[in-house]
């Protein structure tokens, strides 16, 4: 059974069909990518899966449960955690605090626990701190732990967002254009990190504009164009697919 099963997912904004009858099956443990030119409907697709946007029709099944009409925080609680194309860091918090917030789902306790501070709560706080440090080391931000998150350079902010999402121990990690705005070197290290995350057992669904990155690391790729899925297959199949070449790689119509 696939971890994520999307069936006939459609989104209309008035007369504009942003996503048209998209089917997608993301197997457990895979590193799956969705690519497509600008405006192909990738982010719309992502927002629907993660519960940030309601769908017009179609169904989304995650981990055996129907999540089509489920709130975003509940979807996250089921283990489907996303990052954003425009980085959504928590301003006013340090780098490590951002990751600590990420531990929210993996921990418990509310106002009462924070006031009474029972032993399990204190232990948990220490574990959160340690886990946050580990994750920062993992993405290579260990030395900037105490810095203000908003002062990080853009590329590192993206890495921080990935570390933060990982802190919630997701089953499926959705990365929305993680390489956008990164230079070649940063993209390289990001690719390695994504592969490591996947190797450790987390299923990854990646949206990318950068075909180079995707064809190198993804196991399987789906291609969107004008809101439709026009192709799906292994990177080699995609590279050779005539419609993909026409729509995306060949005659690229990018509006500057």
């Amino acid at each position: 059974m696939p971890l994520l099963n999307v069936c006939g997912l459609t989104k209309r904004f008035g007369g504009l069909v942003a996503n048209n009858e998209i089917d997608l099956e993301v197997p457990q443990g895979s590193l799956f990518a969705v690519i497509g030119p600008n405006g192909a409907g990738k982010t719309t697709f992502f927002s629907m899966i993660s519960g940030f946007l309601g769908s017009t029709s179609g169904s989304i099944e995650f981990d055996g449960r129907d999540v089509t009409r489920v709130r975003q925080d509940q979807i996250a609680a089921m283990g489907l955690v996303r990052t954003f194309q425009l980085v959504q860091l928590f301003k006013g918090m340090s780098v490590i605090e951002n990751v600590e917030v990420g531990c929210h789902l993996a921990t418990r306790g509310g106002v009462a626990a924070s006031l009474l501070r029972p032993a399990w709560f204190r232990k948990q706080e220490i574990e959160v701190r340690e886990r946050a440090h580990e994750l920062l080391d993992f993405v290579g931000l260990g030395s900037q732990a105490e810095q203000d998150a908003e002062l990080l350079p853009y590329g590192q902010q993206r890495l921080l967002e990935v570390a933060r999402a990982l802190a919630s121990k997701p089953k499926l990690l959705l990365l929305d254009e993680p390489a956008a705005g990164l230079n070649t070197q940063e993209t390289e290290s990001l690719a390695r990190i994504i592969q490591k995350i996947n190797a450790q057992g987390t299923t990854v669904l990646l949206i990318e504009h950068d075909v180079g990155l995707v064809t190198r690391i993804a196991h399987r790729i789906a291609v969107l164009d004008f809101g439709r899925k026009i192709a799906e297959g292994t990177p080699d199949e995609i590279k050779a697919h005539p419609e993909v070449i026409a729509a995306y790689l060949g005659v690229e119509e990018e509006n500057a």
Binding site: F52, Q72, A76, V81, F84, Q88, F90, G92, A167, S168
Partner: peptide, 11 residues
């Protein structure tokens, strides 16, 4: 206060 969407995405 930093980002409502970011917070919701983390559950």
């Amino acid at each position: 206060s930093g980002s409502e969407n970011g917070a919701a995405a983390l559950g």
